[in-house]
Amino acid sequence: MTDISPLLLAMDLTGVFIFGLTGGTVAVRRQLDIFGVIVLSIVTALAGGLLRDLMIGAVPPASLRDDRYLIAALLSGLVAFFFHPQINRLVKPVMVLDAAGLGLFAVAGCGKALTYGLTPVPAVLLGVLTACGGGVVRDVLVAEVPRVLREEIYAMAALLAAVIVIAGAELGLPRTPVAIAAALAGFLLRVVSVWRGWSAPRAPGS
Rank of each mutant, 00 (worst) to 15 (best):
L7G: 03
L7A: 13
L7T: 11
A10K: 04
A10C: 03
A10E: 04
M11D: 02
M11L: 15
G15H: 04
V16H: 00
V16I: 13
V16N: 00
F17C: 04
F19W: 01
F19K: 00
L21T: 00
L21C: 01
L21P: 00
T22Q: 00
T22R: 00
T22S: 01
T22I: 00
G23C: 04
G24H: 04
G24N: 03
G24F: 06
V26N: 01
V28E: 07
R29E: 14
L32D: 03
L32C: 10
D33V: 14
D33A: 11
G36E: 11
G36K: 14
V37E: 05
V37F: 10
I38W: 07
L40V: 02
S41P: 05
V43E: 01
L46A: 09
A47L: 12
G48P: 08
G49P: 09
G49C: 07
L50M: 15
L51M: 15
R52I: 08
D53A: 09
D53F: 07
L54K: 09
M55A: 15
M55D: 01
G57Q: 06
G57N: 07
V59C: 01
P60Q: 06
P60E: 06
S63G: 01
S63A: 14
S63H: 04
D66H: 12
D67P: 08
L70N: 07
L70V: 13
I71Q: 08
A72W: 13
A72T: 06
A72R: 05
L74P: 11
L74K: 06
L74I: 14
L75K: 01
L75H: 00
G77A: 10
F81H: 15
F81E: 05
F82T: 08
F82M: 06
F82A: 09
F83C: 10
F83P: 00
H84K: 13
P85G: 12
Q86V: 12
Q86G: 04
I87C: 00
I87V: 12
N88S: 12
N88D: 13
N88Q: 13
R89M: 10
R89N: 10
L90C: 04
V91F: 10
K92E: 09
K92R: 14
P93N: 08
V94N: 01
M95D: 03
V96Y: 06
V96F: 09
V96A: 09
L97K: 01
L97S: 00
D98N: 06
D98K: 03
A99T: 02
A99S: 12
A99G: 03
A100V: 15
A100P: 01
L102V: 05
G103R: 12
L104C: 08
L104W: 08
F105N: 10
A106S: 14
K112T: 15
K112G: 04
A113T: 11
L114G: 07
T115H: 10
T115C: 06
Y116P: 03
Y116H: 14
Y116C: 06
Y116L: 12
G117Q: 09
G117K: 11
L118I: 11
L118M: 13
L118C: 09
P120Q: 11
V121I: 15
P122E: 07
A123Q: 10
A123I: 11
V124I: 15
G127T: 11
V128A: 02
V128W: 00
T130L: 05
T130P: 08
T130M: 04
T130F: 06
A131Q: 02
